[in-house]
Structures are given as structure tokens and as C-alpha cells.
Amino acid sequence: MRRPVRRIERLRIFCPALPKQHQEELQTELRNAGRVFANRIFEIRNRNVERNRAATQRQAPASNGGANVQPSRGNVRPVQARVDYKPTSAYVEMRERYSQKLRYLLGLQQHYAASGNAYGVNRSQARIADLEKKFRLESIALAAVNQ
């Protein structure tokens, strides 16, 4: 069986590609559209992060440093704060480490969105999702150790 790439190359002889100028016009249109979507994605994500941060601060009393609610994404229902819960120093350190990385990745995403690099935006989104997953797993592991 022939490889599909060969087939494409063979057919290209009979079917010339779009003129360069036309290709460039299409690419420009797509780049502009991608920039609009990336900016909107960034705006929504930022707004969600801000909303979650505000919800966390509202729930957690200042006495325990606001440490009893884990960060989360999107629209979340506020979780009732547990007054008897004292976060361990290991948890606080871990949370700080992750929030530093998250800030860095959000900055990176903003940079890519501003420069219209849709691939970069997608990559940084994937890295943020990965980071949040790791944070959740590590929180569970830490909670299990502390029990």
C-alpha cells in the first residue's frame, strides 16, 4: 500500500497549490482571528483566576492565612471553610511553589497571546492544566500522609 504522503506529492503535480499571495492573505486572516480568540481566552481565564482568588479570600478568615481552600479553575461553588483545619508547613510551601509556577505560566500565556502565537498559547494552557493536575495529586498525597 502506498503511503499517503506519496499520494499527496504525486497529486500536487496535477493540482498546483494556491498562489503565494492568496496563501498569505488566508494566513493573515487566520492569524488575526487566532489573536482575537487567544485574547478572549486569556481574558476569561484571568477573570476566573481573579474570581477564585476573591472567593478564597472571602471564605478563609485572616486567622489561618486563607490557606484552607485549594485553588481551582473556572466557576466554582465556594467551599465551606473548615475552622479546625490547620495547614501544615509542607502544604503551605507546596502551595507557594505551585502558585509561583502558575504566575509564571500565566505571564507566558499573556506574552504569547499578545504576540499572536496561538501555538504558544495552547502549549501554555496545556502546561497550566498539567500543573493544576499535579497540584491536586500532590495535595491528596500530602493529606494522606498527614492523616
Binding site: 499527496i8 497529486l11 500536487r12 493540482c15 498546483p16 497549490a17 494556491l18 496563501q23 488566508l26 494566513q27 487566520l30 492569524r31 482571528a33 487566532g34 480568540f37 487567544a38 478572549r40 481566552i41 476569561i44 496561538a118 501555538y119 498559547v121 495552547n122 494552557q125
Partner: peptide, 21 residues
């Protein structure tokens, strides 16, 4: 929806040079 549209933009950008007349 926005993420899906953004993915579609990336896919189409890659396709542009391969599309014949």
C-alpha cells in the same frame, strides 16, 4: 467554544499550504 475555535485556527493554518486551487 473559544478554545475549540482557536484549535480550528491552528489546524487551518497548517492546512493552507497544502490546499490546491
Amino acid at each position: 467554544e473559544l478554545v475549540s475555535l482557536n484549535d480550528e485556527v491552528s489546524r487551518l493554518s497548517r492546512l493552507v499550504p497544502r490546499v490546491g486551487i
